[in-house]
C-alpha cells in the first residue's frame, strides 16, 4: 500500500508536473497573473487528488486542461452563463473567403494578446487548445465537455474573429499615424 503510494507520487511528478508551464501559460490567457497562479495551483491539487482516474498512456496534458477547464468554470461561473448564451449563435462553419490578403504581421504579439483578450472565452479556449496546445478535436471536445461539432464551429469562429480584430487594429493604426502626422 505504502509502496504503491510512493509509486503514485513519483508517477505524478514524472507525468503531470512537466506540463506545469503549459498549464500556467494557458491560464495566463484566461486571467491575470495572480488568478492564473491560483488556477494552476487548484488544477494541480485536484489532479493529484484524482490522479488514480488518469489512464496511463493517454494524453496527460489534455487531462490537465480538462481539470483546468473545470476549475475555471467552478471559479468563474458567470463566464459559464455567458458561454451558454453565445452557444445559441454557433451554427455553421464560415468559409475563409478573405484570407488571401495578408493581415498578420510576424511582430503582432501585443496586438494579438489584446485581440485574444477580446475573444469570447469559449472561442479562446477552442483556438488556444487547437493552435497552441495542438490537441485533436476529440480531445478538445473532452476538455471543454461539448460535442465535436461545437468544437469545430468554435475554432472556426474564434480564428475568424481574431483575424477581424487584428485587421481592425491594423486599419486603425495607419489612421492614427496619419492623424498624428497631419
Amino acid at each position: 500500500m505504502w509502496l504503491s503510494r510512493r509509486r503514485r507520487a513519483r508517477q505524478f511528478e514524472e507525468t503531470a508536473l512537466p506540463h506545469l508551464a503549459d498549464v500556467y501559460r494557458f491560464a495566463r490567457q484566461l486571467a491575470d497573473e495572480e488568478q492564473a497562479q491560483d488556477l494552476v495551483q487548484d488544477t494541480y491539487l485536484r489532479a493529484w487528488k484524482y490522479f488514480d482516474s488518469f489512464q496511463a498512456g493517454t494524453n496527460c496534458r489534455a487531462w490537465l486542461f480538462r481539470i483546468l477547464h473545470n476549475v475555471w468554470t467552478d471559479r468563474f461561473r458567470q463566464s459559464r452563463l455567458e458561454l451558454s448564451l453565445n452557444e445559441q449563435s454557433e451554427t455553421a462553419i464560415e468559409p475563409y473567403y478573405d484570407w488571401e490578403d495578408e493581415f498578420m504581421r510576424e511582430e503582432l504579439s501585443a496586438e494579438l494578446e489584446q485581440a485574444l483578450a477580446q475573444l469570447p472565452e469559449a472561442y479562446r479556449w477552442a483556438v488556444l487548445l487547437a493552435d497552441v496546445e495542438e490537441l485533436s478535436y476529440q480531445e478538445i471536445a473532452q476538455v471543454m465537455d461539448c460535442p465535436i461539432g461545437t468544437v469545430m464551429s468554435r475554432i472556426n469562429r474564434g480564428r475568424r474573429t481574431l483575424a477581424r480584430l487584428l485587421r481592425a487594429t491594423e486599419q486603425s493604426e495607419p489612421q492614427a499615424e496619419h492623424k498624428r502626422s497631419s
Binding site: 500556467y24 501559460r25 488556444l128 480564428r159
Partner: peptide, 17 residues
Amino acid sequence: ELLRLRRALKRTVAQHQ
C-alpha cells in the same frame, strides 16, 4: 495566413513563464 496566425499565437502565449 492561417499558419501564420497559429505561429503568432504560439509566440504570444510562450511569452509567459
